[in-house]
Design a protein around this nucleic acid. Structure first.
Length: 616
DNA sequence: TTAGGAAGGACCC
DNA sequence: CCCCAGGGTCCTTCCTAA
């Protein structure tokens, strides 16, 4: 929208530019790899992906984003016409407070393995070091530096990589191997900080403050060099590291000198803020493709650019986001690290991609196999879940999820399948011929499999208390001092640092894109009902002898006082809840009359415009 | 009003 | 074999039951 404001002569050109940029991926900024003829690479990638369904989908998303950005710009314009001095003042106070909370006393190190998977493979087959090589199939998980010279990068489609680098060698993933190697690396890290925080197997945070105290002869730099050297000696793996007064900065720093190097950000306000002032926004962890574009649109390219616009952050984005931006601008971040197993897992699931799948039977077969997979994972983790989540990706790459709270924790493939089937059935009706390229199942509301509420009484007892499942992983295998959870949170509270760390962005204020096509979701519930009935003998309890009886908490019907049967019925009722509107009476089998319109009537009502809260 | 369910996304590795 | 994964976390918005 710069020069010519014509309808759409060159607009496609414009659009493709940003798209091309996004296709090029984060590598050009995130990773330190430059010096590649990015023009050429971009061209190749663009041409290679052009016309594919994936590309089409990306285009649609890109258009949406563009629209959203227009909205943001409009609001910005409106805001600038107002007198926002109060805001400036308020934000400045906020900044002062943040600044006052700054803690530069800790020395945090972020250790990051270089092209981890590829490096591990090279250990087994040294000859691979000399040639471009990548790990992964359809999508590259990672690739060695030789391959990167061709513009190949992790996260790239395999066939595109092949075009960039015809001789590229592909290796299959071998997680066993990587896991072992990661363990070797960690053995070294633990010596410097027993409470190191392992990220995803190829990276970790260490707080070496204590270590430095105990080794006065060492500096942060020499200590880190020693860590890296020792890792290399022990695991034959080269790592990069970042040293900084907080985790966020350390993470950024470790990327600064990527292949086998390290970088330190001095623990002074000056050094930190100077560093941030020229740092591209995308370099920070929570800023991805989308947010980067939004920020750039309003004139924020580096973190230094935030300051002049600081008063617009709040009204333009959400509160959380505004706070996040300020924190980054100031170069603040968390100053503690702790073992990941003091962490509660929130969900567990599995998904898989396949070629165009359609038809009731194939889809059900896939659902079944997915359920079987998930059952294994659940068993492995000794977990049950109380909410099923079905995820589906159409052949057009559009993703939809349907979830259902069950009110009871389940874990067997059979249960999973039965719980998810109605969801699938609903989708089948929503999208006439349902054509999928991906299906996934995920459980949330996890509880410990060993003492999950299997009985109804507990169910209702727990219903109120959120997050009833309080199982903690007690892997004492490490043997390190295990801090009680409370103590930990107390400390956190006491230290007064706000934990807005891994803040993730999302569509802050969708300004509304009116491109929905009202689908006829009509028969969905009907089908779901049908399935629910057919799926099992869930409607049996009716004809039971009349001895002791319990009332169903859902439909109030009296039921035989027999655990299995009773639970089964309640399950049925719970699942029926969603479609209860389809059922006229509360008695009798659900014969689907006319269906719920719930989804239809929620139209597009006028969205509330931003509002500026009145300042006192 | 509020809490929690549901759906959609952004982002990370 | 698919010619752009899979495992997770967290944030937002909408909606409804209590």
């Amino acid at each position: 929208m710069a020069s010519n404001s014509n309808p759409d002569p060159n607009s496609t050109e414009e659009a493709h530019k940003s798209l091309r940029h996004s296709l090029l991926g984060p590598s050009l900024l995130k990773a330190g790899q430059d010096r590649v003829n990015q023009q050429k690479v971009g061209e190749i990638i663009y041409n290679a992906s052009k016309g594919s369904k994936f590309f089409k989908h990306e285009e649609r998303r890109d258009e949406q984003l563009t629209k959203r950005i227009e909205g943001i710009l409009k609001r910005k314009k409106e805001l600038e016409a107002l007198d926002l001095s109060v805001y400036v003042k308020k934000v400045d106070e906020q900044i002062a407070a943040l600044e006052a909370s700054r803690d530069l006393s800790q020395t945090i190190v972020h250790v990051d393995c270089d092209a981890f998977y590829a490096s591990v493979e090279e250990l087994d087959r040294p000859e691979l070091k000399e040639v471009p090589m990548a790990v992964g199939g359809g999508v590259l998980t990672t690739c060695n530096y030789k391959a990167r010279e061709f513009g190949v990068r992790s996260g790239m489609a395999g066939y595109i990589a092949k075009q960039l680098c015809p001789h590229l060698i592909f290796l299959p993933l071998n997680f066993e191997k990587y896991g072992q190697k990661a363990e070797e690396v960690r053995e070294v890290l633990a010596k410097y900080d027993p409470r190191y925080e392992a990220g995803s197997c190829d990276e970790a945070f260490l707080n070496i403050t204590k270590y430095l105290e105990e080794h006065p002869e060492m500096t942060p730099d020499t200590a880190t060099e020693q860590i890296r050297a020792e890792v290399f000696a022990h695991a034959k793996i080269t790592v990069s590291a970042g040293i900084a007064p907080n985790a966020r900065l350390a993470k950024i720093a470790s990327n600064q000198n990527k292949p086998n190097g390290q970088f330190r950000i001095q623990p002074t306000v000056d050094a930190v803020r100077t560093f941030m002032s020229t740092l591209p926004v995308r370099k920070v962890n929570g800023v991805g493709r989308v947010f980067e574009r939004e920020l750039q649109a309003i004139g924020i390219n580096t973190w230094g650019d935030v300051h002049p616009l600081r008063h617009l952050l709040q009204p333009l984005f959400s509160e959380k986001l505004a706070s996040f931006l300020l924190n980054c601008h100031l170069g603040l971040g968390r100053t503690h690290v702790h073992p990941v197993d003091e962490y509660e897992r929130k969900s567990i699931g599995t998904e898989s991609t396949f070629s165009d799948l359609r038809g009731p039977d194939p889809l059900r077969a896939k659902l079944r196999s997915t359920a079987v997979e998930l059952e294994k994972d659940l068993a492995n983790a000794e977990l049950k879940g109380r909410t099923v989540n079905l995820k589906v990706k159409l052949h057009t790459y559009e993703v939809y999820t349907r979830q259902k709270a069950l009110g009871r924790a389940i874990c067997t493939a059979e249960e999973l399948y039965n719980a998810a089937l109605p969801l699938l059935a609903g989708l089948e009706v929503e999208f006439r011929p349902l054509r999928l390229r991906l299906m996934g199942l995920r459980m949330t509301q996890l509880v410990d499999a060993n003492r999950g509420p299997g009985r109804l009484e507990e169910l209702f007892k727990n219903a109120g208390t959120a997050g009833a499942g309080k199982r903690k992983r007690e892997r004492d295998d490490e043997g390190w001092e295990v801090w009680p959870e409370e103590e930990f949170t107390q400390m956190k509270a006491a230290s007064g640092e706000q934990e807005e760390d891994i803040l993730l962005l999302s569509q802050h204020e969708v300004v509304d894109s009116d491109e929905e096509e009202g689908e006829e979701t009509s028969a969905a519930a009907a089908a779901a009902a049908e399935v629910a009935v057919n799926s099992k003998n869930a409607n049996a309890p009716e004809q039971a002898p009349e001895e002791e009886r319990w009332p169903c908490p859902i439909c109030t019907r009296m039921l035989p006082a027999e655990d299995a049967l009773f639970n089964e019925h309640v399950d049925f009722c719970l699942s029926r809840e969603t479609i209860k509107e389809a059922v006229k009476g509360s008695s009798g089998p659900p014969d689907p009359p006319e269906k719920v319109q719930q989804h239809q009537q929620q139209e597009k009502r006028p969205r509330k415009i931003y509002h500026i809260p009145l300042m006192p």
